[in-house]
């Protein structure tokens, strides 16, 4: 089926009308999901939508899971059965889910400053609502935002993006359709420090192409970073406004404190 669809046409447009390096629309929502989380975020990259809630740092349910010198990070991920094109139920023990969870955990463990919270636990619940390619990328970005929203100290924001190659031209932020056909790699960067948090590849990619994609993904990471920062700042500004409102006119000079 997909062979009939042109991944990149002669005019340089992709199947959904984007250019080679164009990202899909990013929508960020910080409204609380589920039951009173400490922080939550929903991000959509086009039609892929992931919602994350963060609880903690808090006392661990099971003492045996805690560490004496740092916080334990517990990530649980569930995929809604109606999220993909074809209905499929994935249980908790599903290999794909376990793998995604493990990848997320190893991405965020070095970034979160866990040593500030010894013997505590940080619970991160990821709910995949819609999938249209770039699942890991959306999970990572949503988790970053939820952690920020929860006020958990991190070394940097982790911004992930998927890249792929069609013959010799690199594409960014692949949809499901492109992901099925192209060799692709997901790269998570920390733009401020310029470090790489994750490189994940499930397909074979020619080594000559890797460098180009790697560089492009790093650049796209900074774009996503600025988008995230804008959303966080907007949210914080709203909070500050709300606080000012609560104070009333009693403290007009408080504005400068923030």
């Amino acid at each position: 089926m997909s062979s009939r669809i042109e991944i990149l046409n002669a005019g340089g447009y992709r199947s959904d009308g984007r250019r080679q390096y164009e990202l899909r629309t990013i929508a960020i929502d910080f409204s609380p999901q589920g039951s009173n989380p400490d922080g939550s975020a929903t991000i959509s990259h086009g039609l892929t939508q992931v919602s994350v809630s963060v609880y903690g740092p808090r006392e661990a349910k099971m003492r045996s899971q805690t560490f004496h010198d740092r916080a334990n990070i517990n990530i649980e991920l569930s995929i809604a059965p109606f999220s993909a094109g074809e209905r499929r139920r994935r249980g908790k023990g599903d290999k794909r889910i376990l793998e995604l969870t493990q990848t997320l955990k190893s991405t965020f463990e070095p970034v979160i400053q866990t040593s500030l919270y010894p013997r505590a636990q940080i619970d991160i619940y990821v709910q995949v609502l819609q999938q249209d390619g770039g699942l890991l990328q959306a999970c990572i970005n949503a988790t970053t935002l939820a952690l920020v929203n929860a006020g958990i100290p991190m070394l940097d924001l982790v911004c992930a993006v998927t890249g792929g190659v069609h013959s010799t031209s690199a594409l960014l932020d692949l949809t499901q359709l492109e992901e099925n056909d192209l060799p692709n790699v997901t790269i998570a960067v920390m733009p401020r420090s310029g470090k790489i948090a994750l490189v994940s590849m499930e397909t074979r990619l020619h080594v000559d192409r890797f460098e180009e994609i790697f560089r492009l993904a790093g650049e796209a990471g900074t774009v996503i970073h600025s988008e995230m920062k804008r959303a966080v700042k907007e949210k914080t500004a709203k909070l500050v406004d709300a606080m000012q409102l609560g104070k009333g006119s009693a403290a007009p000079n408080a504005e400068n404190d923030y």
Binding site: S35, P37, Y55
Partner: peptide, 14 residues
């Protein structure tokens, strides 16, 4: 029909 509970099982009110 199928009902599933989300994984947010350890929050105070769920």
């Amino acid at each position: 029909c199928n009902v599933s509970c989300d994984v947010k099982d350890s929050s105070p009110s769920a």
